[in-house]
């Protein structure tokens, strides 16, 4: 597939007269047409600097960024705006502009000095709004919208700019889970159906693992790892990048787990949701689940009613909730 963005020995950072501070070094990779790439990494790894350098907003220390074969830092702002659009973390206060008018601003690079919209512009704006599933929002002012609706409109605006590449910086940061999933689905649609190349930086590991075609993993101080999400888990890059005290990435469940110092051991017998969540509650409270343990907990589900039975030293105790179970175990 054709590369829309190429990074060639790209080293980002800040340069002042006296010294230079390198943030990320020697990155070589590309963003293909119709590809959705998530840039992830711990705080302070240099995601934002890299994003700003790729979007042409900041000059690199060395190396180059190519957009369709042209050095992005030599393009005129107007040309660049027709090829690349941005969605940012910042909340937009657009006064009394309606959502439609905000999306219409995506046509900025194409309209004349007065900003007059032609019929063809209106058509593109309406398509962008329909794509984002934001038809009902169009007539409302931006200030009336929720954070999630507002970001949806900003994504539609970026789409109406008709770019080859959309760059989104932490756009889901303030959104709840359903809204984050919704934005991710929307971006996938834009990549698949319209062939946009999308680069999204995010803190949301789970969403990145499920939604991205490729992941650019930027560890703190290390070199960037690139691959399908699954590749990065299987080769251990993911676990390494996010290894911190008291936490580890569990490659079985694809989620982070908090380490505990276990002081009690129990054996757990049971099936399904009730067993899974019981184990989680136990681990959270520093109880290790081990089949050989002396204390045995049986989880039984009859008629939507869960019952936990603790067997210890030949005696049985029946308990009706996870909360009471934990209290009982802690007593021992």
């Amino acid at each position: 597939m054709e590369a829309v963005i190429e990074l060639e020995n790209l080293t980002t950072g800040y340069r002042s007269l006296s010294n230079e501070k390198i943030i990320t070094s020697e990155i070589n990779t590309s963003l293909l047409r119709g590809e959705l790439v998530c840039l992830i990494g711990p705080n302070g790894a240099g995601k934002s600097t890299l994003m700003r350098t790729i979007s042409g907003d900041q000059k690199p220390i060395s190396g180059k960024v190519f957009l369709e074969g042209k050095n992005i830092h030599e393009l005129t702002p107007k040309y660049l705006a027709k090829k690349l659009s941005l969605v940012l973390t910042e909340r937009v206060h657009a006064g009394m502009l309606t959502a439609y008018e905000v999306v219409a601003l995506g046509r900025f690079p194409y309209t004349d000095w007065s900003g007059k919209l032609k019929d063809s512009d209106h058509k593109i704006i309406q398509e962008a709004i329909a794509m984002a599933g934001a038809d009902e929002l169009a007539d409302r002012t931006l200030s009336e919208l929720s954070d999630g609706e507002r970001q949806k409109i900003m994504v539609a605006r970026a789409f109406a700019q008709e770019p080859q590449v959309m760059i989104l910086d932490e756009v889901t940061a303030f959104l709840d889970l359903p809204r984050r999933v919704e934005i991710m689905k929307l971006l996938r649609k834009m990549a698949n159906e319209s062939g946009k190349s999308i680069l999204l930086s995010t803190h949301d590991m789970d969403l990145a693992l499920r939604g991205a075609d490729r992941i650019w993993l930027l560890p703190k101080g290390g070199s960037m790892q690139i691959g399908a999400p699954e590749d990065l888990i299987l080769n251990g890059a993911f676990q390494e990048a996010f290894a911190t005290e008291g936490m580890h990435f569990d490659s079985q469940s694809g989620a982070f787990r908090i380490h505990n110092n276990y002081d009690t051991e129990v054996a757990l017998i049971g099936e399904g949701d009730s067993a899974t969540w019981t184990q989680r509650a136990l681990e959270r409270n520093g109880v290790k689940v081990d089949p050989d343990a002396k204390i045995l907990i049986k989880v039984q589900s009859d008629q939507d009613q869960n019952v936990w039975i603790i067997e210890q030293n030949g005696s049985e105790t029946e308990i009706r909730s996870v909360y009471d179970l934990i209290i009982q175990i802690k007593k021992n």
Binding site: S55, D57, L86, L105, F108
Partner: peptide, 16 residues
Amino acid sequence: NAFLLGENYARSMGLS
């Protein structure tokens, strides 16, 4: 009008 979205967005739309 572009400035209403803030300077960063305005710049990304090709505005000097």
